[in-house]
Amino acid sequence: MRYRIVVAIRPEDAPLMREVMGDEFDLIVCTSLPEAQSSLTQEVHMIACGVHFDDGRMFDLLKYAKANEALRTIPFWGVLRDEGMLSSAITRGIRTAMKTLGANGLFNLSQMRTDEQPELLYKELRAALAQSLAANGASQP
């Protein structure tokens, strides 16, 4: 069995997220806030939400998840791929706001060095993610 992750992203980001996450997790890809909200159950082990999800509704999904007692313990990670378009101050501001609202943090895909063998980097990331989920007591279905 595998960990179940809700991935809330823009449609155009789905191929990259599938590549990053590989086949090692059960992904529930959502492209709208109502779709993501209806996908959140206690059987979900993590939420990965793009900063630009549903025209910037990442914070709405974060607030929804943290306000619901049955969902608030699910780890929530923001995902950013800005290709260097945002200043470090803006990125820090997003990260700070997310932490204040209860997110685990912000993962910036643009900071990953994928010039050579991105599949190895993604594999290491997936292994670290699985280890983190196991360490936090997420039981696989």
Score class of each variant (00 low, 15 high):
residue 33 L to D: 01
residue 58 M to S: 11
residue 130 A to T: 12
residue 75 P to G: 06
residue 24 E to M: 11
residue 79 V to R: 06
residue 77 W to P: 02
residue 13 D to C: 07
residue 24 E to F: 13
residue 33 L to A: 02
residue 18 R to N: 07
residue 12 E to A: 08
residue 71 L to I: 12
residue 44 V to M: 04
residue 30 C to D: 07
residue 133 L to Q: 05
residue 123 K to L: 11
residue 55 D to W: 07
residue 109 L to D: 00
residue 110 S to M: 02
residue 5 I to K: 01
residue 17 M to V: 15
residue 83 E to Y: 07
residue 42 Q to E: 13
residue 100 T to I: 12
residue 125 L to E: 10
residue 120 L to G: 09
residue 130 A to W: 05
residue 124 E to D: 15
residue 31 T to A: 12
residue 56 G to V: 14
residue 52 H to R: 11
residue 97 A to F: 00
residue 34 P to N: 08
residue 96 T to Q: 06
residue 33 L to F: 02
residue 68 N to H: 15
residue 89 A to Q: 07
residue 99 K to V: 13
residue 110 S to W: 00
residue 43 E to Q: 11
residue 141 P to I: 07
residue 74 I to W: 02
residue 21 M to T: 08
residue 58 M to W: 07
residue 128 A to I: 10
residue 7 V to F: 04
residue 141 P to H: 04
residue 103 A to L: 01
residue 128 A to K: 13
residue 14 A to N: 05
residue 51 V to G: 03
residue 53 F to Q: 03
residue 70 A to Y: 08
residue 35 E to Q: 09
residue 103 A to S: 13
residue 54 D to K: 01
residue 100 T to P: 00
residue 75 P to R: 04
residue 132 S to N: 14
residue 29 V to K: 09
residue 43 E to G: 07
residue 38 S to P: 06
residue 14 A to M: 12
residue 29 V to S: 06
residue 67 A to D: 15
residue 30 C to S: 12
residue 82 D to S: 06
residue 47 I to M: 05
residue 4 R to S: 10
residue 98 M to N: 00
residue 29 V to T: 09
residue 50 G to A: 14
residue 37 Q to R: 12
residue 19 E to G: 11
residue 54 D to W: 02
residue 104 N to T: 01
residue 15 P to E: 06
residue 90 I to V: 12
residue 110 S to K: 00
